[in-house]
Simulated scan of single mutants.
Amino acid sequence: MRLSSPMILKGALGASLALNLVLAGVLWWQPAQNPHGPSRMQARIERLLPEADREAFRRAMQAGRAQYEPAHAGLREGFAEIQAALRQQPFDAARLRAAMAAGRTRWGEFSRLYEESLTQALGAISAEGRALVAQDIERGQREHRKDGRRREGQD
């Protein structure tokens, strides 16, 4: 069987997505002093904001929690399914593929619901507060680019 370029590209994209799901699970649920999951992003944004905006943001995020929390719980279940498939002996590639496909669906649903809550919360704060969030994103992008160049130079 000869592999075509589109087939290779689809395989590479699938492998990349699978790796992202596994890494997201590791990063999302690693024990830490800081809050984890969606609370980590919320806490980071709250630290940036002036007090009046912080309260408005917190209230709006709390209002959306009932929408995205069940989807977040589904993500945790999905990662447990992926872990079980990875540990299964003998290894069953079809089971792992199915668990990762279900994870993609769960991630999409959680992402959609969380983004809606985040959008509502960011709309509830001042223009100054949103500018502070934008500056933080820019700072993170600069640091990410800088770290990437440093790593490339070390290889």
Rank of each mutant, 00 (worst) to 15 (best):
A56P: 02
R139L: 14
N34M: 14
N34G: 15
R47Y: 06
M7V: 09
L132P: 13
L132C: 10
Q67F: 10
R40E: 11
A85C: 03
A93M: 11
P6W: 01
Q120K: 14
S5G: 10
A15H: 05
S4T: 11
M61Y: 04
A84I: 00
A93K: 07
Q120V: 11
L75V: 01
R151M: 13
W28A: 07
A121T: 00
R59T: 07
A71S: 07
M61L: 08
L122D: 01
A52I: 01
A80P: 05
I137E: 12
F57V: 02
A121L: 05
L17S: 10
Q135F: 10
A85Q: 01
E138G: 14
E116M: 09
D53S: 06
R47Q: 14
E55F: 14
F110S: 03
Q42N: 12
A73E: 14
L48P: 08
S111Y: 03
R54D: 01
P70G: 08
A71V: 00
W28V: 01
G103W: 00
Q83K: 03
R47D: 15
R139H: 15
L3G: 06
F79E: 03
G123E: 02
V22P: 04
E51V: 08
A121D: 07
A121N: 03
E51K: 06
A85W: 00
G140C: 10
H72K: 09
L49H: 06
G129F: 03
E138Q: 13
L86S: 03
M41Y: 13
G153V: 01
H36V: 13
G153W: 05
Y68T: 04
G148M: 04
E138C: 13
A71E: 07
Q42T: 08
R2H: 11
A127Y: 11
A32E: 14
L75K: 01
L113R: 11
R59V: 09
E116L: 10
L9E: 11
S39L: 14
H144N: 12
R130C: 14
G148D: 01
A12K: 06
T119W: 13
Q135W: 08
A99M: 00
A131C: 07
G11Q: 03
G14A: 11
P35D: 07
D92P: 08
L17F: 15
R112M: 00
S4C: 10
R130E: 03
S117L: 03
E116I: 01
S4N: 09
Q154T: 08
A121F: 11
L75Y: 01
R151P: 12
N34E: 15
Q83N: 06
I137V: 12
R97K: 04
I82W: 01
P90S: 10
V133F: 07
G74I: 02
A80E: 08
P50W: 15
R151D: 07
G78N: 02
E115I: 00
I137D: 12
E51G: 11
F79H: 13
H72G: 12
L13T: 02
L19Y: 08
L3A: 07
L13W: 06
L27H: 11
H144I: 04
N20S: 10
E109G: 05
A84P: 06
R40C: 11
G25W: 02
L49D: 10
G108A: 03
E55N: 07
Q89H: 12
L17Q: 07
